[in-house]
């Protein structure tokens, strides 16, 4: 099933390039193995939509699915709910374990699990194994699924090797576009350059870097409703001077942060539009931004 683990006939010990849309080819000799491509089963990717995309911004999960499909992989959406992050961060260890076990049961048996969110992917790959005793069955299964769980942009860049696309025109030319690095993805999974690379290659977008790109926006899951005043100050600090700097779009990779940021921008009648990066990667016209009118 894992075609990348099979060796080339002429170059023993080498792996095949992930270039499924074109052909299977050996990294060393470039030999193309069309037969393999035709017969081998497609790589099966389970999409974890994440609660917020499922509920509030389905187009993010749809975009994620189509981007993965574009790489020649097969997308599945197993029955799913929540990774358990709110319970985990509230100290509810038992509830988190139960939800982790539900998740593992649903998502086992796929080659990869992909989520359009750094914090949800990190929950599975970084935190799930910490929930269980080191030598138990659950621990082993969490570790196993953790290794196969990816944040979308990292997956597209490092595993699926999404092609830059054919359209060379810069659809977003003339727009000033900023990026908010969400904390979990950035610090727990090392997601930083991948979305920028994709946005640059596929959409010709060069990010105007924020001075405080890596500072928390104040979302923090239940934190933002438990300590709303502090959270609001944090998002205001984050957005300080953004309107004046002429920013048109603010992008990010985690809907929690983006709902928070967009919610605050809308309340302050800002003209900045907010999107998940996946929406721009897929659509030449991504439609209304998060929280903007006309967005269905």
């Amino acid at each position: 099933m894992h075609r990348d683990s099979a060796g080339c006939i002429t170059c023993p010990g080498t792996d095949f390039q992930h270039a499924f849309t074109r052909a299977m080819s050996c990294r060393d000799c470039g030999m193309r193995l069309m037969a393999v491509q035709d017969e081998a089963p497609k790589i099966r990717v389970a999409l974890f939509a994440t609660c917020l995309a499922d509920l509030i911004r389905p187009q993010v999960a749809l975009a994620a699915a189509r981007l993965v499909e574009e790489c020649g992989m097969e997308v599945h959406v197993p029955p799913q709910s929540c990774c358990g992050q709110p319970a985990y961060n509230s100290g509810e260890q038992d509830k988190t374990r139960t939800l982790a076990e539900v998740f593992v049961r649903q998502f086992e048996g796929y080659d990869y699990v992909v989520a359009p969110s750094g914090s949800c992917a990190a929950m599975v790959s970084v935190h799930y194994p910490r929930l269980f005793e080191r030598d138990g069955e659950s621990y082993r299964r969490c570790l196993e699924i953790g290794k196969r769980t990816w944040e979308l942009s990292r997956f597209l860049v490092e595993v699926a090797r999404l092609s830059p696309g054919t359209s060379a025109d810069n659809r977003f030319e003339g727009l000033t576009i900023a990026y908010h690095d969400s904390c979990s993805g950035l610090r727990e999974l090392g997601v930083r350059d991948q979305p920028r690379k994709l946005l640059s290659e596929r959409c010709g977008i060069e990010i105007r870097e924020l001075g405080n790109a890596e500072v928390c926006c104040g979302f923090g899951g239940t934190f933002c409703v438990k300590y709303p005043e502090i959270s609001t100050r944090m998002v205001d600090n984050k957005l300080d001077g953004l309107d004046e700097s002429g920013t048109d779009l603010l992008l990010g990779g985690d809907l929690g942060c983006l709902l928070n940021i967009a919610g605050r921008l809308r309340r302050k009648d800002s003209r900045i539009r907010v999107y998940h990066y996946a929406e721009l990667l897929l659509n030449s016209d991504p439609g209304a931004g998060i929280g903007d009118s006309g967005g269905d």
Binding site: A49, L62, V77, Q80, C224, P228, L259, A262, D296
Partner: peptide, 22 residues
Amino acid sequence: MSGWTDTRDFPRPGQSTFQSLW
């Protein structure tokens, strides 16, 4: 949800969940 909506709008969801759309 006043903790959220006192200072922030809540972005309106689409017509369906992703799982229904899928």
